[in-house]
Amino acid sequence: MAKFIKMIVVLVCITLASGMALGALNYVTEDRIIRNRLEMTKVPRVIDIMEIKQGEFSGQKRAEIKEGLLNSYKNIEMGGNTYNLFTGRDDTGEVYMVAFETKGEGGYGGEVGVMVGFNVKEDRLEGVGFTSHKETLLEPTFTEEFKKRGLDITYKPDKAGGDIDGITGATMSSVAVCNAVSRAVSFYKEHKEEILEKVKQ
């Protein structure tokens, strides 16, 4: 019996110490990690989406826009989730696009993170970019399928009866991306007013 108790006590102590150590390290590194994710995976995808309308940016312009996006992004909390909300401005400085990231399940390697941009003036999808995924066959050109599409089409691969041309041989990856996009679309449709309100603040 004493041995049994010792086993439990030792394991509990080790896991407790481990949990505390990780908590402390998380506290130290969290800000930098969030900043890295924003700077190096999320913001570049937003800029890619903005290039659809405004043409390719020069290196310097890209850096300026990046700085602007980093300074102006907001977090919105809805339905228990936090979204990083980015606002894209055109040459005149007017807001024409909002973008945020959603996750789509069902991929070959788990969830796929997708940055989805909406054109608020014309009320349509502006474009998408992949932020995090472990798919081996997810072609970067698949984003072309989502350029300037309406909000009322069915965001599913054609094989599943939708309006998106799926990637040949990578049905699961296509499904996961479509899941993420259609989640973003319904979120945008439902909360458009609140999102625009947030942007103006």
Binding site: K3, M7, V10, L11, I14, T15, S18, A21, L22, L25, N26, T29, R32, I33, N36
Partner: peptide
């Protein structure tokens, strides 16, 4: 009796530490 479980907890802890430091 619980050595392998203990080792794995210790190892996993350090792996997550390395992962966080690297991501930061």
């Amino acid at each position: 009796e619980v050595r392998v479980a203990s080792y794995i907890v210790v190892i996993a802890t350090f792996v997550v530490c390395v992962e966080m430091v690297m991501e930061a």
